[in-house]
Amino acid sequence: MEKFAVFKIGKEDFGVHIGRVVEILKSQKIYSLPELPDFISGVIDVRGEVIPLLDLRKRFGAQAETRKCRIIIVRYEDEKIGLLVDEIDKIMQFDPEEISPSPAMFKGLRTEYLTGLGKKEGRLVILLNIERLLTSEERIVLKESTGLIEEEDAGTGKSA
């Protein structure tokens, strides 16, 4: 029995394993820094902690709705990363037999992003593999840039 936090991007339901989730936040002020790579849409300040933000709507080709947005903070390797989504729905439980392996291609998404498809209550939830959300190249760039942010943060801290 696995629990997933289910959220919406456009009309699709996505799930992320609950063990991964740190916290759910409402929309916050997003700081954009010039050194950030393209796939990071900015950073947010969560109780003094600077967390890079990955806009999943952009990544999955959905049109970014500015009307309503939520942020899920997840653990990514040793870091925390924020995912920008439309709406958090609820926590759902899936029995192993309710999770089917992902097909080669699903709704234009490369299946390396997915761990499977959860089917329950007539809904189809795309279960995301957080580890594979970024390419290895992007992973390196992200590490560098987060290092940069921390340095900068430390620098401003000293000056203040």
């Binding site: 936090a5 609950i18 063990g19 958090i88 926590i91």
Partner: peptide, 17 residues
């Protein structure tokens, strides 16, 4: 109300963990 909803989600996540 929205804030409360968010809080309940976070609580559920903590509880599940």
């Amino acid at each position: 109300t929205e804030q409360t909803n968010l809080l309940s989600l976070n609580a559920a996540i903590l509880a599940a963990q």
